[in-house]
C-alpha cells in the first residue's frame, strides 16, 4: 500500500512540474514548448520506445532461447558475453555511434535503442531457462514428451512458461532503460521528449530542461509499474510458491 502512495506522490510531483513549466509560457526570451508540443513529444517518445522494445522482444527472446540449446552451445558464451559486455557500453556512446553510422533521425534512434534493449532480454531469457532446477525440468520435460507433446509444445507450454517470470523481469529492465535512452536519442534528432531536454541544455534554461525531463521520468515510472503489474498477473501462484521455496533453501 505504501508503495502505491509513494508512487502516486512521485507521479503527482513530476506531472505537476510538467504542467507548471508548460504554464510559464516563456522564460526571458525563450519560449516554453506549448502544451500540444509536450503532448506530441511524449507520444513520439513512446513510439520510439515501443517500436524498439517490440523489436527487441521478438529478436531477443529467440536469441536467448537458442543460446540455451545444446546445438548452439559453442556460440552461446559469445552471445551471452556480448550481451553482458554490451550493457556496460554507455548509452550515449551507443546513440552517438548509431547517429554517425545510420544518420540522424527516428530510424537510427530506434535501431540504437533496439540493440541496447535486446541485451537484458537475451540475458534474462538465457538465465531464466537455465535457472529452472535441472531435476524438476528433466522430470517435467519427460512427462510432457511422454504424454505426447511435440518439441514445440514442450518449449512453448512448459519451458518458456517456467522461465517467464525472469524473462518478464528482463523486459521490464529494458523498457525502463529504454525510456531514458530514448531521451538521449533526442541528440540525434529523433524527436520526443529528449528534444526538449537537448534544447534546454543548449540554451541553459533549467525550466526547459525540466519540461522535458519531468515527463520522461513519469513515463519510466508508469511503464515500470505497468509491466510489474503484468508480471504478477501472468506469473501463476504455483511458480511464485516455487520461487519462494527456492529462496528458502
Amino acid at each position: 500500500m505504501r508503495k502505491y502512495i509513494i508512487l502516486g506522490l512521485l507521479l503527482g510531483i513530476l506531472l505537476g512540474l510538467t504542467i507548471w513549466m508548460t504554464s510559464l509560457g516563456s522564460v526571458g526570451i525563450f519560449k516554453m514548448a506549448p502544451p500540444m508540443k509536450v503532448l506530441s513529444a511524449t507520444v513520439r517518445h513512446l513510439q520510439i520506445v515501443e517500436a524498439a522494445e517490440l523489436l527487441a522482444i521478438t529478436i531477443g527472446i529467440p536469441i536467448g532461447f537458442l543460446s540455451t540449446r545444446r546445438a548452439c552451445r559453442f556460440i552461446s558464451p559469445v552471445l551471452i558475453g556480448t550481451a553482458n559486455v554490451g550493457q556496460t557500453v554507455p548509452t550515449l556512446a551507443f546513440i552517438g555511434i548509431a547517429g554517425a553510422v545510420l544518420g540522424m533521425g527516428y530510424k537510427a534512434a530506434v535501431i540504437a535503442l533496439l540493440v541496447y534493449a535486446m541485451l537484458p532480454i537475451i540475458r534474462n531469457t538465457y538465465a531464466g531457462i537455465r535457472s529452472v532446477d535441472p531435476a524438476l525440468k528433466a522430470a517435467v520435460k519427460e512427462a510432457a514428451r511422454g504424454m505426447g507433446m511435440s518439441m514445440l509444445q514442450v518449449t512453448a507450454k512448459v519451458e518458456m512458461r517456467l522461465a517467464m517470470p525472469i524473462i518478464l523481469a528482463g523486459i521490464r529492465t529494458s523498457m525502463v532503460v529504454n525510456v531514458g535512452t530514448a531521451a538521449i536519442a533526442g541528440m540525434i534528432g529523433s524527436g520526443g521528449l529528449g528534444e526538449l531536454i537537448v534544447t534546454g541544455i543548449a540554451v541553459r534554461v533549467t525550466q526547459l530542461i525540466l519540461q522535458g525531463a519531468a515527463p520522461t521520468a513519469a513515463l519510466a515510472i508508469i511503464l515500470d509499474a505497468l509491466i510489474g503489474g503484468v508480471e504478477t498477473w501472468v506469473t501463476p501462484r504455483g511458480l511464485k510458491a516455487l520461487k519462494s521455496a527456492q529462496w528458502q533453501q
Partner: peptide, 9 residues
C-alpha cells in the same frame, strides 16, 4: 514417472 513431473505453473 517416479519424479511425477507435474507442471508447476
Amino acid at each position: 514417472i517416479q519424479n511425477i513431473g507435474l507442471f508447476p505453473h
